[in-house]
Design a protein around this nucleic acid. Structure first.
Lengths: 146, 146
DNA sequence: ATCTTTGCAAACTTTTTGCACCAAT
DNA sequence: ATTGGTGCAAAAAGTTTGCAAAGAT
């Protein structure tokens, strides 16, 4: 049933002159099955359960290829690691700085900000790329230091 | 004239049991003189013009100390490097993905989003930490690919 | 005298790249 | 037969850390 989504993406890939390999099939189906925000490493681990020889660098290269096709997008959470997700899920990440929980919220919540920035500065935001940091409800409640 | 800002920060540092060293004086005055968004490396270069022996790792440690004091904040622009600025400049960074220009906008523009997120999710944002990616006016006009 | 900070070098983390081999079309 | 993709190992890039020496209080 998630089969079709994988095949749809493989179709896009093939149609644009790309080749369908087991590594790519694995990465795409890992993305489809993913809980939402996954690092390249997470994906590699997931893929390696089925295809043990798929190397992390191949995962990065596959993700890069899929991003060029507009199928995948990535976001930077705190530190340095990026998280990837399918581009058709238009959402934003809210990352709690205290408990590291990632909350997904619909993209529409950025509409107001987007139009304001566009009107005032002519700047067109692409919100999907970055996470918003702050504190989730629980961690706001417990008044932790700093 | 920017002397006073440097001294004010050094005062905070001293009052909280920190020691005032030439490396720290240099980093702080580099921050005060900074055009806005500076990387640790930029700061190191700036400081080294006056104190050649100040090491990059010392700059990182100084920035960390200043962040703990709430005097400095950092933000992640695209790739991986962080940019630092004095915390009293409450502003957001808009980074153009095409020309890499960084636009600073007042924090107040996030007020609407902040209250919306707070109301809907109980999430308290700290907008100063992350940059917003998108396209500046010029680069939006020239309809570049992708 | 004490306790912080520093310089250096080395470790670390995440991502990228060069290259020869392999495989999808 | 092509040409694009892969595994591997090594390089980048940015930041952090252990340690002994230097410095601020």
């Amino acid at each position: 049933m998630s089969e079709s989504r994988v095949d749809r993406i493989l179709g896009i890939l093939r149609r644009r002159g790309g080749r369908v390999t087991s590594a790519r099939r694995g990465v795409i189906s890992a993305l489809v099955d993913a809980p939402g925000h996954v690092t390249a490493d997470d994906l590699a681990t997931h893929v390696q359960a089925t295809y043990p020889d798929v190397h992390l660098s191949t995962v990065y290269r596959t993700l890069e290829a899929l991003e060029r096709l507009g199928v995948v997008d990535h976001t930077h959470l705190g530190h340095g690691r990026a998280v990837y997700h399918l581009a058709d899920e238009a959402h934003q990440h809210l990352v709690c700085e205290v408990c590291e929980t990632v909350l997904e919220v619909p993209d529409t919540i950025f509409a107001g900000l987007a139009s304001e920035l566009h009107a005032s500065y002519g700047f067109t935001i692409r919100p999907s790329h970055f996470a918003v940091l702050g504190r989730c409800a629980q961690c706001s409640a417990s008044d932790a230091p700093r």
